[in-house]
Structure formats: structure tokens, C-alpha cells
């Protein structure tokens, strides 16, 4: 007795799984793309370097630096 592993139902599920995979991949691409665009739109890199939760001595204005 032969066991038929593949069934039309499996084909349909495969289509759905691939579809969902594509949607998730697209979602990741969108969030990544938005992040890149939003960060680049800030222009000045120092603006977002401030937010990395680590002390960055080089960002603290030095006395007499502007003169």
C-alpha cells in the first residue's frame, strides 16, 4: 500500500506559508528602510549619537572650543 505524502492541501498550505514569509520579509525591509531614512534625515550624526545610552565624552562641549 503506497502512502501518498503530497496532497493538494499541502500545496495550498505551502502557498500560504510562502506568502506569509514574503509579507514578514517585506515588513522587516520596510522597518529597516524607514529607520535608515529617518536617521539620515536627521542630518547631523551627533544628534543620534547622543542617544546610544553610553557616556560619549567627545560629545560634551569643551571649554573654549567654540572660540
Amino acid at each position: 500500500m503506497a502512502m501518498r505524502v503530497e496532497h493538494e492541501l499541502h500545496e495550498r498550505r505551502k502557498g500560504r506559508n510562502y506568502g506569509l514569509g514574503l509579507i514578514l520579509a517585506g515588513f522587516i525591509a520596510i522597518i529597516f528602510g524607514l529607520t535608515v531614512v529617518k536617521v539620515l534625515q536627521l542630518g547631523d550624526a551627533a544628534q543620534f549619537e547622543k542617544f546610544d545610552h553610553v557616556a560619549r565624552p567627545q560629545l560634551i562641549p569643551q571649554e573654549g572650543a567654540g572660540e
Binding site: 500500500m1 503506497a2 501518498r4 496532497h7 492541501l9 495550498r12 498550505r13 500560504r16
Partner: peptide
């Protein structure tokens, strides 16, 4: 009938 296939009683929606 010599082969066994999964039951198709409930339709599963496609994408």
C-alpha cells in the same frame, strides 16, 4: 484503493 490521502472535508483558504 491502494493509497491514502489526507481528508479534504474542510477547505483551507489560500493566500
Amino acid at each position: 484503493m491502494s493509497d491514502i490521502s489526507a481528508s479534504d472535508s474542510t477547505y483551507e483558504a489560500s493566500m
